[in-house]
Write a protein that binds this DNA or RNA. Sequence first.
DNA 1: CTAGGGTTAG
Length: 818
Amino acid sequence: MSTISLISPAKLAPTPTKHSKQSIKTLKNQTLNAAPVQVLKHCIRTRNLELGKLVHLKLNQSGTKLDTVTLNSLISLYSKCGDWFTAKTIFESMEDEVKDLVTWSAMISCFSHNGMESQALATFVEMLKHGECPNQYCFSAAIQACCSKEYARVGGTVFGFVIKTGYFESDVCVGCALIDLFTKGFGDLESAKKVFERMPERNSVTWTLMITRYGQLGCHEDGIVLFLRMLLGGFMPDRFTLSSVVSACAELGFVSVGQQLHSWVVKMGLCLDVYVGCSLLDMYAKCDSREPMEDARKVFERMRDHNVTTWTAMITGYVQSGGLDRTAIELYCKMITQGDVLPNHFTYSSLLKVCGSLSNLEAGRQIHNHAVKSGLVSVNCVGNSLISMYARSGSMEDAQKAFEILLEKNLISYNAIVDGYVKNTSSDDAFKMFNKVEETQTGVDSFTFASLLSAAASLGAVGKGEEMHARLVKAGLDSNQRVCNSLISMYSRCGDIEAAARVFDKMKERNVISWTSIITGYAKHGLAKSALEKFDQMLKAGVKPNEVTYIAVLSACSHVGMVDEGLKHFSSMYSEHKITPKMEHYACVVDLLGRSGSLEKAVDFIESMPLKADALVWRTLLGACQVHGNTELGKLCAEMITEQDPDDPSAYILLSNLYASKGQWEKVVKIRKTMKEKNLIKEAGCSWIEAENQSHKFYVGDTFHPRVHEIYKELDQLVTDIKKLGYVPDTDFVLHELDEKEKEQYLVQHSEKIAVAFGLISTSKNKPIRVFKNLRVCGDCHTAMKYISVARGREIVVRDSNRFHHFKNGLCSCNDYW
DNA sequence: CTAGGGTTAG
């Protein structure tokens, strides 16, 4: 489809005749000397209200009684120039006998074009009462008044009326109105299509209308097919057609078709049309090119006149291109200082998005102020963007305020606030808001479920996730790609990789996110072989990997110690797919080398990096130092981390853990003191588990749970039982200076052990126990879990901050490599 | 004199 080649416009029709300056001048003189009605006609065509008013004044001054045709012309003039009040005054001043069908039609049309649908319909009824028999123009105007969702049902009645007259149904004009009634009023593309296909006579306007409506309902491909049919039918596209078709190309990413259309635009002399220009600009902005925004900028610069829309399209283009956020803001400044245009709601929406993605709260508040001053804050589109901006900048209170003051909350408003809660780890609030949405008529969509599934995933609440799964099936969204991608992540992050794989296998069309999600899932579960197999299949399926895919592939290798394989993929990243490795990728390789014990190679690798290693890379190496007990190198890593990130508590904690494991308690105490002085707080370790659709959270030695006595009784029994199987508490993992007995007692009370004990007494025996921990699982707990899986004959799944551990029959899926 | 089509956002 994207490779279609179009017939040249020259073959379709001769180039439009251009009026010379001389001929335009003569035309104008003729117009001014003509009769008043002729001048009014000219004013209506050119929407020249000034001249029209002058004629109106002259006519009134002449004192003669105006005839129906003149009065009709005046109504039409004021109506089309937006002055509905004067049009209405003239209409009301007319005696009923003077009014003819044209008068009524003009007035109905005036009301409907100026947002007064009910008045338009009342006028239509009044006309019928007067015994007038409507013609195609009246019907068309009356149907147009019904094209909004609220009046669509009335429109149906009018349609029935049209059919009864059996006569105007085939009129081009009535047909167009009906197409709008079905598409805009009912969202029913099928019926609109029927009207269109049955029309005995069509012209360029009809074709363009249908193409445009296809696009507005998201059926861009069908729009292009219709456009091709239009060309084959010999109809000449014009500026209206081209702007719609170019927009369709933008949405579909059909650059080559868009470029052909661009050359038509040039040949037809439509370059300066702001609508066409805007569509072209948007197409180049949305579609990939080697130099982002270069072609869009050229189109922009070649247009002589810029309006808010072209400026905004350009700003939006920079926002969507990613990495050009600053340019977007600069362009906004240029627009308000020299553009001679005022920003509109779309402009603010895009700018707020920039501030959100930069997490620049200050700039966000400034734009917020601009929007307040312009009086556009309460507009839905601006309000929704405000919610997202504040949520992304981590300020949920402001996001909530923006949400509450919205005059009208639509689906996007709810999605924005729900997603805000999810991203700011208040998943409970997200689900509460979801319940509120369900009470309204707003409905939910794929974005709502994507957010909620992510909430369930971060909680590890598989029960919640399954509930959402059931609901989205009910909503008919179970084959939606975005939703399926979220389901894959949810199931895998909740520990059920098999369920994730089932969703993946059932998908009809998979994109790079679908593949990356399942590969990440296998990687986190330590199933490197499956991960790499999927990666292989992905390449064979012709799907291009992205940066995130490579993070998944490299970490899959790293989790199982496949050093050579990992390095191979790292080098193919650029050589085969032209993806430049980022810091995260380098960190993966450092992890790959470091964890396998090649600490020196890891250091060499860091030194050979084209980027200066950041705190993440050094933290990774420090982690490896801890695994391999290398305090010297660990100390160096910690220094490197604190040099770049002096307030990062993780460096201090990792280092203190390293010293503690070596029994160097003076050093531990010293680090603790520094941390206290700097007021650095470490994240408290905690574990949680889902039971009966509720999350139960435990800290070290936690005694707040209502079933605390049962839990500790089970825990004591458990320790006794696994000791019989050979478990020896490894008190090296107690990072405090205590005596052996105390250390052992302390180990027993680690949060992950408490959570497992609770799981054993509260969940059904045939299901695995799924525990989640915010930090990495402790070494002694890891050993204990293996014994517990034997002692209780249960599979235990632990998700820690890094990966999954599946304990079964005394073994762990990580093969103790972690 | 009465009819019909377009651009940008979350």
